[in-house]
C-alpha cells in the first residue's frame, strides 16, 4: 500500500509540472507583447527595455519559466493588472467563495446522483430506472448557464422568492451560512451547479451496479442463501471504484463549470474572477486562477485514485 501511494504521488509530480508549463505558456498565447497591456502607449523604447529587464522578459524563455516557477513555488503569482493586488490574495478570496458553493453542491449532487443510480441499477426496467436514464441524458445535454437563467426567471422574476444574483448585502466577508438572509443567495447557484453531476453520476452508478449484478459472484451469493439486502451491499461495494472515478472527474467539472454558473449569478468565486480577468485582459490573474484550479483538480484525482485503491485492492497491482 505504501509503495502504491508513493508511486502514485511521484506520478503526480510530472503532471503538475506539465500543468505549470501550460499555464506559463498562456502568456505567450496572448497576441502581442506580454508587457503591452501594462505599459502606457507613449512609453519610449528605453523605458520598455528597462521594464523588460526588471520583469526578466529579456531572458530566454526557459530561464523565464524557471524564474516564474520559483515565484509560484514560494506562493508569488504576480500582481493583478486591474486591481494591483497580489494575484494569490485574489485567488484565495475567490476560491473560498467557490468552496462555499462546492460544500453544498458536491454532497447534494453526489448523494442524490448515487442513490438514484443505485436504486435504478437494482431495479432495472422500472419507472425509476427510466427516470434516471432520462435525467442523465438531460444532465449531459443541459447548458448549466442556461439552467441558471431559467431558474432565475422562475424563482427570482416570476415567483420573486429568491434573490437572482450576488452574495447579499454583507458580501463574502460577513457571509453566515446559518442566517437565511445570506443563505438564500446560495440556493439557486447550488441547484444549478448540482444538476449536471446528478445526471452524469446517476447514469454511471446505474451502469456500474447493473454490470456488477450480472457477474457470477452475485449468483454465488444468492445460491449461498444471502438475503437480497446483503447481496445489494456486496454489489454496491464492488461498483464503488467505478463510481468514485466519475465523482472525481465531476468534482473537476464542478470547478471548471463554476466559471459559467458564477458568471450567471455574479457569485464572487474563482469562476467569476476568471471571467473578470478575461474581460479586463488581466493575464496574471487568468494564469494564477487556472493554475490553482487545475492543481486542485490534480490533487483531487490523486486522492480519488488512493481512495479507489483502498476500496478495491486489485487496482494496486496494475
Amino acid at each position: 500500500m505504501t509503495f502504491y501511494i508513493a508511486r502514485r504521488m511521484l506520478y503526480a509530480i510530472p503532471i503538475a509540472f506539465g500543468v505549470s508549463l501550460v499555464c506559463f505558456s498562456l502568456v505567450y498565447l496572448a497576441p502581442g507583447d506580454p508587457l503591452q497591456t501594462v505599459m502606457p502607449p507613449d512609453a519610449t523604447a528605453e523605458t520598455i527595455a528597462i521594464v523588460k529587464h526588471a520583469y526578466g522578459f529579456d531572458k530566454p524563455i526557459p530561464i523565464q519559466y524557471l524564474m516564474w516557477l520559483g515565484h509560484v513555488l514560494t506562493g508569488d503569482l504576480g500582481m493583478s493588472i486591474s486591481t494591483r493586488r497580489p494575484v494569490i490574495r485574489e485567488v484565495i478570496d475567490a476560491l473560498s467563495n467557490t468552496a462555499l458553493l462546492a460544500t453544498f453542491a458536491v454532497p447534494l449532487a453526489f448523494s442524490l446522483g448515487y442513490t438514484m443510480g443505485a436504486i435504478a441499477g437494482c431495479l432495472p426496467g422500472r419507472w425509476l430506472d427510466r427516470l434516471v436514464t432520462g435525467t442523465a441524458v438531460i444532465g449531459v445535454s443541459l447548458p448549466n448557464y442556461w439552467l441558471g437563467i431559467v431558474l432565475v426567471v422562475v424563482f427570482a422574476v416570476e415567483l420573486a422568492a429568491l434573490p437572482a444574483t450576488g452574495m447579499g448585502p454583507t458580501g463574502s466577508a460577513n457571509f453566515h451560512i446559518l442566517d437565511w438572509s445570506c443563505a438564500k443567495y446560495l440556493v439557486l447557484p447550488v441547484m444549478t451547479l448540482a444538476m449536471i453531476p446528478i445526471g452524469i453520476l446517476s447514469r454511471t452508478t446505474r451502469a456500474a451496479v447493473a454490470e456488477v449484478r450480472n457477474q457470477d459472484f452475485v449468483l454465488t451469493l444468492r445460491a449461498k442463501g444471502l438475503s437480497e439486502w446483503a447481496v445489494i451491499r456486496h454489489v454496491l461495494k464492488n461498483s464503488l471504484p467505478q463510481v468514485m472515478a466519475v465523482m472525481g472527474l465531476q468534482f473537476g467539472y464542478l470547478l471548471g463549470g463554476s466559471i459559467l454558473v458564477e458568471t450567471v449569478f455574479t457569485w464572487p468565486g474563482s469562476g467569476f474572477l476568471l471571467s473578470k480577468a478575461i474581460i479586463n485582459r488581466d493575464v496574471p490573474v487568468l494564469q494564477g486562477t487556472i493554475l490553482s484550479l487545475s492543481l486542485i483538480f490534480v490533487a483531487t484525482n490523486l486522492i480519488v485514485d488512493l481512495l479507489q485503491s483502498m476500496v478495491d485492492p486489485r487496482i494496486r497491482r496494475t
Binding site: 503532471i15 498562456l26 466559471i259 483538480f297 490534480v298
Partner: peptide, 21 residues
C-alpha cells in the same frame, strides 16, 4: 496527453480562448 487531462475541459477551453482573445 495526460497533462491536458489535468485540466477540467471547460477550464482548458476558457484558458486557451481567454489568453488568445
Amino acid at each position: 496527453m495526460d497533462v491536458f487531462y489535468a485540466f477540467p475541459s471547460v477550464l482548458l477551453a476558457v484558458a486557451i480562448a481567454g489568453a488568445m482573445g
